[in-house]
Write a protein that binds this DNA or RNA. Structure first.
Length: 470
DNA sequence: AAGCCTCCCAACCGCATATTC
DNA sequence: AGAATATGCGGTTGGGAGGCT
């Protein structure tokens, strides 16, 4: 163990006892350190004190250099873009400040950590979830996969393949088990890497959520829901289906190109642009240490956000537990959702809207856009398998074609999938509810991000559809 | 004006890991 | 191989600045 210079009041140095200084650095000290590093380079920090006469421990010198003196440091407040990156990186990495800083040139881990901690506090006080809902859903989805991925398959994550992309949020996340009661989960959900392909119901009103036969997830639908309604289920939430999934309305994914990032790291948009140039959905690169990288999560149902919740935030086991306790998290989520349902039952929607609006507005979204966002998000995700490990899926509705999925990745497969994506989007749009207003974020001509972040295609599609049907 | 609160930032602290001897 | 040392990381603390009552 290294002598902790930061904590030392004094240390022996060649028989003499020297008091090491603590506290803020002076300009003189900075100059000495700068000069020393200029001459000798970084590293060997303990030698600084020995050779330069600086009464600072090596640790302190390193910190001072890294956080304040080294060249190319960006000073000043984080830009909006940087803030967005931090949120996404945190969702992906958790409190790995150094790793986050490595992805943000010119920024230090300390800065990022400070920013995050104050942001966290602010959001806690406001009763807001830590992450935007889309990111939270992504995390929930991943937790579910971790918990339920017990059946090995050729589609399991390959730690050797850094390009592997976990399936991001999909249309089927509308029916995400995590948004339902855990009692359903324990018995019914056993799946690996769900393919985002809705099929049909069987005679038992079982909704086959995936075309891929390897995936066994199914849901029992209310008897009143028929095949003919399936497509329209995509957009409006049927009253006779579980209310709970309305708690998890995703917002459009945060998408950008991380201009400062290396080519191999594009957090949450790990899917390469598909042949149409879209960046679809949000993927998380597989990581052998994914379990330890999952950040602390908090159920982000807007129905549960209240000032009381904010007050209880610090003791929320779902927040601090971090890496373990998935089952407890699910239980917690169950309780949260149950509470949410009660609240929803007891409170008129319009009362809740005020609270929810905070969340949406914070991310530049209007409440009215919510339903459309739900479905639009889903369309984004149709192409999530367009990544390198995507399984080519025969473009066919019948079940026999399902068995033709080979699990072998081909470029043709990706192209085929992309075509299917387009078709699925168009099919979805054909079922788009009539008279639904165009989302604000879709209409906003000033919002250049829509065209820069890969949403423009979908926006165009939705806009034209809305104008057709409305 | 004074006290309180919050935010922000810099620095400290303890621990873990890597490297050197 | 094991101890000593160096480095890195994440959590925490303390203090100044500014806003609010």
């Amino acid at each position: 163990m290294a002598p902790d210079g930061g904590g030392l009041k004094a240390r022996n140095n060649g028989g003499t006892r020297q008091v090491l200084k603590k506290g803020p650095w002076t300009a003189t000290e900075d100059a000495i350190l700068m000069e020393y590093v200029k001459k000798n380079g970084e590293g060997n920090w303990n030698a600084v004190q020995r050779n330069s006469g600086l009464m600072r421990c090596g640790k302190s010198c390193r910190l001072r250099w890294a956080n304040h003196l080294r060249p190319n440091l960006k000073k000043g407040a984080f830009s909006l873009e940087e803030e967005r990156i931090i949120v996404e990186l945190h969702a992906k990495l958790g409190n790995k400040w150094a790793r986050m800083a490595a992805q943000m040139p010119g920024r230090t881990d300390n800065e990022i950590k400070n920013y995050w901690n104050t942001r966290l506090k602010r959001r806690q006080r406001a009763g807001l979830p830590i992450y935007p809902q889309d990111i939270q859903l992504q995390l929930n989805q991943q937790e579910n996969q971790l918990q339920h991925s017990t059946i090995p398959s050729p589609f399991d994550n390959n730690p050797q393949n850094s390009n592997y992309i976990n399936p991001p949020l999909s249309l089927l996340d509308i029916f995400n088990p995590s948004t339902m009661k855990p009692s359903n989960i324990s018995n019914q959900y056993q799946f690996n890497n769900p393919s985002p392909y809705l099929t049909t119901t069987n005679n038992n009103n079982q909704l086959k959520l995936f075309r891929d036969p390897r995936v066994s997830l199914s849901l029992t639908l209310a008897s009143s829901i028929r095949n003919s309604q399936l497509s329209s289920m995509v957009a409006p939430v049927p009253n006779n289906f579980s209310q709970s999934y309305s708690n998890s309305m995703p917002v459009p994914p945060l998408q950008h190109n991380y201009p400062n990032f290396g080519s191999t790291t594009r957090p949450f948009t790990g899917i390469p642009s598909n042949p149409n140039g879209l960046i679809l959905g949000m993927g998380v690169q597989n990581n052998p240490s994914v379990q330890s990288s999952i950040p602390e999560t908090r159920i982000c149902s807007r129905h549960t956000t209240s000032s009381d919740d904010a007050d209880n935030y610090a003791v929320d086991p779902g927040l601090s537990r971090g890496n373990s306790g998935l089952l407890e998290d699910l239980l917690e989520e169950s309780q949260t959702l149950t509470r949410a349902e009660k609240i929803e039952e007891n409170c008129p929607i319009e009362n809740e809207a005020g609270k929810g609006k905070l969340v949406w507005e914070e991310y530049g979204l209007s409440e009215e856009a919510e339903d459309i966002i739900l479905t639009e998000e889903s369309t984004f995700s149709f192409a999530q398998q367009g990544g390198e490990d995507a399984t080519p899926i025969k473009h066919s509705e019948d079940s026999t074609s399902l068995n033709s999925s080979s699990g072998i990745t081909t470029k043709e497969g990706s192209l085929e999938l992309a075509n299917q994506v387009d078709e699925d989007i168009m099919r979805f749009l054909d079922n788009f509810p009539v008279g639904v207003p165009v989302p604000d974020w879709c209409n906003d001509e000033n919002d250049q991000q829509n065209t820069s972040n890969g949403q423009s295609f979908e926006c165009d599609q939705i806009q034209s559809h809305c104008s057709k049907s409305g």
